[in-house]
């Protein structure tokens, strides 16, 4: 196998855009017959325009926590939590299985469009949901150990804790790694397959845990 240059970065240390990839293992390794079908890849691993939205959301979170008013906290917790839950369920049970059945070029096309958005959306909605939720729980008294709903709240801590460990330890690193692999001049299909599989399984686990979150949160909201 020919060595791949590690300096596939531009002068700013950014991965180069516009690299090409042979979509099948045979063409990547030069073992296939016929000319390789190359798909130009031009995408940002972290979409910079999206960072503006992230900054706005975080400023809103800081203001809501500092003001400590019920509606802004409720809005951010419910909106962030709903987005987190829906994304996890959708990725785990809809997109994940579809991703596994797509052809390599289609999978790469979907991954390069979907995953950069997930790199910024998921950590943002998770942070907003957790920080606003903590503040809301304190304001409403659910955090206090004497509250009748305290047991449900502790159950939600445990579920969120398991999801956080899976998401932070497996899902997010796989998400970043697959995008960086795809940026290389000679990405390896077996690496991409392995990372996408890890991403899909992790998303499935967090999706299943989100069902528990739905049960707990609706129980808490019902009093």
């Amino acid at each position: 196998m020919p060595p791949t240059r590690s300096d596939d970065l531009d002068a700013d240390g950014e991965p180069m855009s516009g690299v090409t990839i042979a979509p099948t293992q045979a063409t990547v390794h030069g073992e296939g017959a016929g000319p390789p079908a190359r798909v130009p890849l031009d995408f940002e691993i972290v979409p910079r325009k999206g960072l503006i939205g992230v900054a706005v959301a975080f400023v809103a979170l800081i203001v809501a926590i500092a003001a400590n008013k019920l509606w802004p906290l409720m809005f951010l917790h419910v909106a962030g939590g709903a987005a987190w839950t829906v994304l996890d369920l959708f990725l785990g049970f809809v997109i994940g299985p579809i991703l596994g059945r797509l052809s390599s070029p289609a999978r790469i096309e979907l991954v390069t469009r979907l995953m950069p958005k997930m790199v910024i959306i998921l950590p943002t909605v998770v942070t907003i949901s957790l920080a606003a939720g903590w503040q809301l729980g304190t304001k409403l008294g659910y955090v206090l150990s004497g509250s009748p709903s305290h047991g449900w709240l502790v159950a939600s801590f445990i579920v969120v804790g398991v999801m956080a460990v899976v998401a932070l330890g497996l899902l997010e690193p796989a998400n970043i790694a697959v995008l960086i692999e795809l940026k290389k001049p000679q990405p390896r299909p077996e690496v991409i397959e392995s990372l996408i599989k890890r991403f899909s399984y992790s998303a499935g686990i967090t999706g299943a845990m989100q069902i528990a979150t739905l049960v707990i949160m609706t129980r808490l909201a019902s009093g």
């Binding site: 955090v143 150990s145 305290h150 445990i158 956080a164 460990v165 932070l168």
Partner: peptide, 19 residues
């Protein structure tokens, strides 16, 4: 992941006893 699980467990332990 084990390290993260330990700090999550510690955080849950503290949060569950407040105030």
């Amino acid at each position: 992941m084990a390290s993260l699980a330990l700090i999550v467990a510690g955080g849950i332990y503290l949060s569950a006893h407040l105030p």
